[in-house]
Simulated scan of single mutants.
Amino acid sequence: MRVKSFWKYYSGQEIAPVLTIFIGGNHEASNYLWELYYGGWAAPIIYLLGFAGVVKFGNIRIGGLSGIYNAPNYCLGHHERSPYNDNTMGTGKLTETD
């Protein structure tokens, strides 16, 4: 896997040339995007719709649903929760030896 150029926009090193609206997919830096679980500005003029979202741009309504189809999980439903908890932050936790 190669690191592409989104980090330059996310860090503020570059500014996108046009308004960009996106949803999370399969290869994004999900650890950063979880911070915007319900949507928000990922970078100047780059807006993340979150897990599911709708925005209005002029007279156009833009919506998106993020996710990957997985047959066993398809009918389980999606239940709102905080983006982070002790279990989901496991790789970022410091231990006494750090």
Rank of each mutant, 00 (worst) to 15 (best):
W7H: 10
H79T: 11
N31G: 05
T97D: 15
E35V: 00
G64V: 07
T95V: 12
G40E: 06
S82I: 07
V55Y: 01
L36Y: 15
G64I: 03
K93S: 10
T91G: 05
I62F: 09
E14K: 12
A29P: 04
G25Y: 09
I21C: 03
I45A: 10
I45M: 08
Y74T: 03
L76W: 05
R61Q: 11
Y32T: 04
W41P: 00
C75S: 11
I23C: 12
G92C: 04
N70G: 10
H78V: 15
S30Q: 15
A42F: 14
V3K: 04
G64A: 04
A16K: 05
I21T: 04
L19V: 06
Y9Q: 05
E80T: 09
T97F: 15
F57R: 08
E14C: 07
M1Y: 06
L36R: 13
G24I: 02
K8A: 04
N31S: 12
C75L: 13
G77D: 01
Y10C: 00
K56V: 09
A71E: 15
A43H: 07
P83A: 14
Q13M: 03
V55S: 01
V3F: 07
G53R: 01
K56S: 14
E28H: 02
I60C: 13
A71Q: 14
H27E: 09
L33M: 06
N87D: 13
N31F: 06
G64P: 01
V3W: 02
E96K: 04
K8D: 00
G67Y: 00
C75A: 12
N87P: 03
A43N: 07
G25V: 04
R81E: 05
N85S: 12
Y38C: 14
G39C: 06
S82E: 13
S11Q: 11
N31E: 11
F22T: 03
V54S: 11
P72R: 11
D98Q: 03
K93I: 15
A16E: 07
Y47P: 00
N87E: 14
Q13S: 07
F6G: 10
G12K: 08
I23A: 13
N73K: 14
G77Y: 00
T88N: 05
G40I: 09
V54P: 00
G50W: 07
Y84V: 03
S11P: 01
P83N: 05
N85P: 04
I23T: 15
L19K: 05
G40T: 08
S11M: 09
F22V: 03
L94M: 05
Y47I: 08
P83T: 06
L33Y: 12
M1S: 14
N70K: 14
